[in-house]
Every structure is written in structure tokens, then in C-alpha cells.
């Protein structure tokens, strides 16, 4: 049977009395860029946090690639194949760009204490591969010359790219990006768009939270719109932007997105 890569059904999450997520269902096909948009406080980041185990949902069903999964232990979500970036950049600041990406390789590598202490050849080989892989990913996101820079010394746009490289290093089946264009200037946004398309064309599936309407409409294959924790519209960008409820949610009645 043909199943979507990620299928989420009727997820609920309350904070006190506020329903941050209210029966949210979502289904993402392999190989697409899926957009999740909505006004401030709509529940987009909460959805990411629930999906990646940072918050425990009150209810809901999660399937990744046809397999039921319970996002309970955060570290198992990355192993299962979902990697994410953060709305407020969260890099390992005092480490170099290269080391940040190498940490992303952690789940796909095995060297333990013995490999470190003994320096046996299999361990050294894995370490060399990790390093090479990280260098390739840095080049892939356009940070080839920045391998040895402290993460927090990079420009804002570069930090966002570094987060993407670090997430890609976990070999995710779904790459979830929380506002990757935030804080970028116009030309950086253009470059980001082509990076996202390149990542998709290389066989990845992306879930994208983004406020920049032009970017979302341009790059996404399908979009869900959240408002007050509810999904108010799903569809191709062209359909969604004409949806009256979406227009109302964004700009009040009578306006156009």
C-alpha cells in the first residue's frame, strides 16, 4: 500500500486553558516540500515540538513511513528519521561549524569510549568518515570555507544554514525547518530557496514553517494553514492563498494574501 511519509492524526496539546493544537491532522508525501503557515501564536512551533518529542501531546497518532511512533524520548525521534532546526537558532556555540555537523552524525555512528582511548583502526576510520561527511555537508549548504569557525561567530544567515547541515547529518527522512528565512535579507532568501529546492531534488522531504509568504508560496508543493491551533486550509499554494478563511486569518476580512 502506498502510505505518506508522515501521517499525523488528531493531535491535541493544551497549555493551561489554551488549545495550542486542536485536532491537528497532517499528511506529508515523500519528496515534497510541505509548508506549515499561520499567524503568530497559531501553534506551528508547538506542532514541531510535539512531533519531535520535546512536548508530550495530550492525544494523537503519529506514523512515520507507515510505522507507528510515539514521540516520547526526544533522542529517539532523530534516530527514527526526523531532524529539525529551531526558530531561535540553537547551535553548539563554542564548537566549530565542522564539529556542529559532526555532532549531527552521532546517531549514525558508533565509536564509544574504547574507540577513543585505544584509537583502533576501525574507530579512526569512522572518525575520518564522519569528518569527511561533515565537510561535504558544509560545502553542500555553502559553508565550505567556514569549517573551523566558531558557530556563534558566523553571520545569522550562515548560522541558519549550519543548522540545516547539522540536521541533514542525521540522515533524516523528514527535515523540519522552523522559520529558516527569519532574519535573512532578500538575497540570502533567494539563496535559501534554491538550497531548499536542491535538498528536495536530492530526495529529501521537507516540512517548512515560514512567515515569508512569497518564499512559502514559491517553494512549497503543498501547504497547511494553522490558526488558533486548528488547521483551516490544506492544499497547493494557489488554492490556499484564495481560501477565504486564510485571507481572514492573515489580514482580516476583505484583504488578499
Amino acid at each position: 500500500m502506498n502510505h505518506p511519509l508522515l501521517q499525523i492524526e488528531k493531535v491535541n496539546k493544551q497549555f493551561g486553558g489554551v488549545a495550542a493544537l486542536d485536532d491537528v491532522s497532517l499528511s506529508i508525501e515523500a519528496g515534497e516540500i510541505y509548508g506549515l503557515i499561520g499567524p503568530n501564536g497559531a501553534g506551528k512551533t508547538t506542532f514541531f515540538n510535539v512531533m519531535t518529542g520535546l512536548y508530550t501531546p495530550d492525544s494523537g497518532r503519529f506514523q512515520l513511513d507507515g510505522q507507528e511512533y510515539q514521540p516520547t524520548a526526544v533522542h529517539q525521534v532523530a534516530r527514527a528519521g526526523i531532524a529539525r532546526t529551531f526558530q531561535n537558532i540553537r547551535l553548539f556555540n563554542a564548537m566549530s561549524a565542522l564539529e556542529n555537523v559532526m555532532v549531527g552524525r552521532h546517531v549514525r555512528t558508533h565509536n564509544g569510549v574504547w574507540a577513543a582511548l585505544s584509537g583502533h583502526s576501525r574507530g579512526r576510520e569512522e572518525e575520518a568518515q564522519t569528518r569527511a561527511h561533515a565537510h561535504r555537508l558544509l560545502a553542500y549548504v555553502g559553508l565550505a570555507g567556514f569549517a573551523n569557525y566558531r558557530a556563534d561567530s558566523l553571520s545569522y544567515g550562515h548560522q541558519r544554514r549550519l543548522e540545516i547541515a547539522r540536521a541533514l547529518a542525521t540522515e533524516p527522512r523528514l527535515l523540519a525547518l522552523d522559520e529558516p528565512a527569519a532574519g535573512m535579507n532578500a538575497s540570502e532568501k533567494v539563496q535559501l530557496r534554491s538550497l531548499l529546492e536542491k535538498i528536495r531534488d536530492d530526495g529529501h522531504t521537507l516540512l517548512l514553517i515560514e512567515h515569508d509568504v512569497k518564499l512559502v508560496m514559491g517553494v512549497c508543493d503543498r501547504i497547511s494553514v494553522l490558526d488558533y491551533g486548528r488547521v483551516i486550509a490544506v492544499g497547493a499554494p494557489a488554492e490556499v492563498r484564495r481560501h477565504p478563511q486564510v485571507i481572514q486569518a492573515y489580514l482580516g476580512a476583505g484583504a488578499h494574501v
Binding site: H75, Q76, T170
Partner: peptide, 15 residues
Amino acid sequence: MAIREDEEAAQAMGL
């Protein structure tokens, strides 16, 4: 060191 720098981000990377 990743844990030292940001524990939640480290967890999200599968540590």
C-alpha cells in the same frame, strides 16, 4: 560538549 552547549538541541540531534 554539545550537551554542555545546548542540551535540548543535543537531544534533538539524537544524543
